[in-house]
Amino acid sequence: MNDSNAMGALRKLCIGLAAAAALGAAGKAASQEVAFPSRPIKLMVATTAGGNSDLTARMIAEKLAVAWGQPVLVEQRVGANGMIAAQALAKAPPDGYTAYLSLSSMVQNVLLQPNPGYKIEDFVPVTMVISIPIALAVGGTVPASTVGDLMKMAKDKPGSVSYGSYGTGSGAHIIGSALARAAGVNLVHVPYKGETSSFTDLASGQLTSAFGSTGFYAAQLSTGKVKLLAITGSQRMARFPNVPTMAEAGYPGANLPGWSGLFLPAGTPEPVVSRFSQEVRKILAMPEVRAKLDDMGFVPVGNSSQEFGQYIKSEVSAWSAIIKENNIKLD
């Protein structure tokens, strides 16, 4: 073989080896993508056990575990209105093995807290799981049948009407502040770690009223210990045709529904985000899941990562305007 032929053969060999290496790398990357998840996943929630947000997380975790063949473990990170859970997610490795089912407080903390310990940019939105009509409930012995009745009580005896929320700076806190400002009254804010925590005080009469998910309070109506005065949302709920929205009750500035969405740490590979989003959206489309969420008083959503991202931007703008308009500050 002359030098020219030898050089040509060498070039062909090098090209072949490079192609094989490229194919091998691509095959390895593809196998890694297909392999996710290959170990247990942690799904964090910021609410106490037994509440509807916790039950929603457990239902999704159970369905994900079946679909993916890996345990999905729900972990309570309660406290600081969700900031503890959000901070944990911001510090988690961006590999898809730590997720957070957040409430809308994720946005409100950034707007109200001087140092929430995270930025919205620290997360990648996966899908909005549910829209949450928020109910204003009063204890069963409270002599108020409408929001107007309750505001009159607060006006007649300043400082006598309290309302519970699921955390300082939460949507419930902001709704209560907006309601008090619109009515020109003083409502005493009492923050709790979750709606289940406030119910005991509401039922015993230590707390006049409380905001929480409609489904949670609906489950307590048969006890006679609570009454629903209004809900937040664009329209009345079919199961409560006689309960007005806050706007219908005369307080459109306090008509603010909440939401819950799934997030992963920023930098999580797009194929992992996409797989998470697609699987959770499949779960939310299941008739039995939709029925359970409806029973809880939630509205299933299940949008794309991009759609949820746009929604988050609109939420930052909307809540920021409401907070400034009503001069809402932390207690």
Rank of each mutant, 00 (worst) to 15 (best):
P244N: 00
Y217W: 07
L43H: 10
Y97E: 00
I134Q: 06
G253R: 01
A19W: 13
A154E: 04
Y100D: 04
P265N: 05
S38A: 03
P116C: 05
S204Q: 15
A20Q: 12
A238L: 14
L103T: 14
S104M: 08
A180Y: 02
L187K: 00
S53C: 14
G261I: 11
A144H: 02
P37R: 00
A35H: 00
A182W: 04
Y100S: 04
R181W: 08
D3R: 13
A85L: 11
V45A: 09
A85D: 01
V289D: 00
E195D: 10
A65T: 08
E248L: 06
Q235F: 08
F216H: 07
A154I: 02
P133L: 04
G148Y: 00
R239G: 10
P244D: 02
D95R: 06
V188K: 13
G51Y: 02
T168L: 13
V142Q: 06
L112V: 07
K157T: 09
R58L: 01
P133Y: 03
Q32F: 08
Q278E: 12
P94I: 05
P71F: 12
S234R: 14
K63E: 13
Q235R: 10
Y100Q: 13
A88I: 14
R281L: 09
T168M: 14
I175V: 11
A22C: 13
P114E: 07
A230C: 02
